[in-house]
Amino acid sequence: MVRILVAEPSYLVRKGLSTILNELKTVTQIEEISSADEIREALTSIIPNMIIINTTISSMPQVEEDIRKHTPDAAVISIFNTPIPKNTNEKTLSVFDDKSVLINKLRSQVKSVQQTYIQQENSEELSEREREVLQKIALGKTNKEVANELFISTHTVISHRKNITRKLGIKTVSGLTVYAILNQIISMEDIS
């Protein structure tokens, strides 16, 4: 499933984009937001693979930083409120583009997103390292404790945790604990 975040102030344009994206027949989850205030929450809750963002929003302070921080791998496509020359980069759209241009650009972008990390995502298997991190988290250890025990930095632990959450669709520690028990990564006795 390709998750797409559409950040566009104009309701009409937002709906138009969603309609075109829905025509692409790829299984997609589309989340729409209309202002820079909502972006951080949207990034962390849906973890988009692709962000289609109006330049009036991406030029706001902090927005680019937030995107880099929360979803460094997401493909970012800009929408301009002005006409743009033909044959420009595929990662730019204009509200004046006609349907054929839009659909071609969007289709190739969605396709490339699909190829790159949807594959990784479908192989939902956790890596050896991620299993180790999960085991310790499920036992109730803090990021810092996990880092010390595995001789890695807390930063690395956090990035493992993000991947675990993305792969499993489980956000909370208690949820991860339940998963770990169900999959015999830890046993019920370990936590009591």
Binding site: G175, V178, L182
Partner: peptide, 13 residues
Amino acid sequence: EKVFDLKNILIKY
């Protein structure tokens, strides 16, 4: 968040 997790555990695992 926990409701989200519960849902996924029931659906997937």
